[in-house]
Computed example of a mutant assay.
Amino acid sequence: MASENPLLKRAYALNGDQNQIRAVYANWAKTYEADTLIGMGYVAPAIAAETMAQEIGQNDVILDAGCGTGLVGKELRSLSDAVIDGIDLSPDMLDQARKKDVYRTLNKADLTASLDIGDARYDGVISVGVFTSGHVGPTAMNELIRVIKPGAPAIITVHEQVWHKDGYRDHLDQMEKDDLAKICTIRETPYHQNEGYHCKLCILQAA
């Protein structure tokens, strides 16, 4: 069921234009957590972080791709001893994440382009709220897999609205055929509980 929440309508109406996305999140950064966690019942960060905590070892170095205000990083650090680096398109969201003091580094990055990160640098990658309407498409998953070590986990949420429309399942199957990643599990989990939205929680492993 489509949400009537005007904040989500604005976010989901984005068309992939990076300047427009930056502008929306610049205006939203300071109230984002109250609006999403409390107003929308945004549970995806906690669910994904709990899943990642079960997949990693002590002091593993994890990339939080599209870290926003740091909701995932905060959850993951409460559950593990992970060292976490964060990247995001929005400098204003990164400023909010910096206040949490849970990240080793925080840098601006465009997930629709090649990342300025070497191959196989991380012990895992987590990305929550990025693969959704008008933000980042499925091909960005290839870069996330590239920057993690062989056998390392990738925990990625895909909003239910784009899962079929944007061909995520087909893309993941192709990644597996191309020996880029193994699909371990794909399960449906709550996303914005108060809005009735779910997501596909994708648990992948780099080949």
Rank of each mutant, 00 (worst) to 15 (best):
G86I: 09
I126N: 03
V72M: 06
G68V: 14
L76H: 12
L115V: 05
I148T: 15
A154S: 15
L76S: 06
I155R: 01
K108Y: 10
D81K: 11
D110P: 08
R98A: 14
D92F: 04
L94M: 07
G70Q: 04
L76V: 04
T105W: 09
K99F: 05
D92H: 13
I87N: 00
T132K: 12
Y103N: 07
N59M: 10
R77E: 10
A65I: 05
G73S: 05
V61E: 14
G118P: 00
A120T: 04
A82L: 01
T112R: 13
K108T: 14
F131A: 04
I56Y: 02
M93I: 04
E55F: 12
K74R: 11
I145K: 03
A113H: 06
K149I: 02
I148W: 03
L63N: 01
C67A: 12
V83D: 08
D110H: 11
P138D: 14
A120I: 03
A97I: 10
L94Q: 11
P138F: 07
V136A: 05
Q96R: 09
Q58Y: 14
R146F: 00
N107V: 11
R104A: 11
L79H: 03
I155A: 04
I126F: 03
D110Y: 06
S90T: 02
D95I: 05
Y122I: 05
A65C: 08
D88E: 07
G86H: 04
A82Y: 04
M141H: 09
N59E: 11
